[in-house]
Amino acid sequence: MNYKLDELRQLEAEGIHIMREVAAELERPVLLFSGGKDSIVLLRLAEKAFRPGRFPFPLMHIDTGHNFPEVIDYRDRRVAELGEELIVASVQESIDQGRVKEETGPRASRNQLQTTTLLDGIEKHGFDAAFGGARRDEERARAKERIFSFRDDFGQWDPKEQRPELWNIYNGRVRKGEHVRVFPISNWTELDVWSYIQAEELEVPSIYFAHEREVFRRDGMLLAASDFVALQEGEKTFTASVRYRTVGDMAVTGGVESTAASIDEVVGEIAATRITERGETRADDRASEAAMEDRKRVGYF
């Protein structure tokens, strides 16, 4: 025996350790589950961390209302299979209650609005820790975020006042009203996530595989034609074979042209890609050089 773990199993062991620390040290954690690939990995890590027991936390979906129907189907199926509790916090409700105002214009999305719904959800249920599937390879501001990321009672992240994080010893201490965001797959790359989904034979929503869809081109991305987005002058819809690299607000999440219909083919494409996940598929991150940093500061995922 050589007593070695390969890279994926080392990352898995780290993720399980992080989840158990949170379950042991915080009073009321929640796991943010979007139905996207990263949170799908979180659910598997939670199974590995806590079975045969139940998860010591509920799941929460911040529902923009701008969903790919395939993702909602998947979400409900997966939650039922796990037998765990799902809380849905709805952006539509935040709008109806006047907590936030719907953006207008052709590029309107509900991405920013999610922050209020998320923070309201955390406050309403008294959560003191929220697991998220964010990865440090996604974006430059994320590369500097701790695994246990402290949020003050306004949900704000202060990148200059982060707690030092050493070895595998985490400080999750919070006062009432404050919380920590915890990112068990901080050290995973997009390819790690797909390789893990492949190794674990995890089901993912069908939109991650190539399918024919009515799309139009905007800002160099292929956006899905839907009720949530109005075509501008000069934009025409056409049918293309696409798959998605991320799951988000349908109005701003771009698909990539692809014929990868199986998990093996997707892993092959990701390994060969020359464009980052967010650069290719998230219009919201293209807004400015520090778009993510600014959103994170006010409480975004």
Binding site: R136, D137, R140, A141, R142, A143, K144, P159, K160, Q162, S186, N187, T189, E289, A290, E293
Partner: peptide, 20 residues
């Protein structure tokens, strides 16, 4: 690798950043 706004402005790295 210089991730945060302050770093880009000052041209120095001010925190631990993780790269893959």
């Amino acid at each position: 690798t210089d991730g945060l706004r302050a770093e880009r402005e000052q041209g120095i790295t001010i925190d631990v950043a993780y790269r893959y």
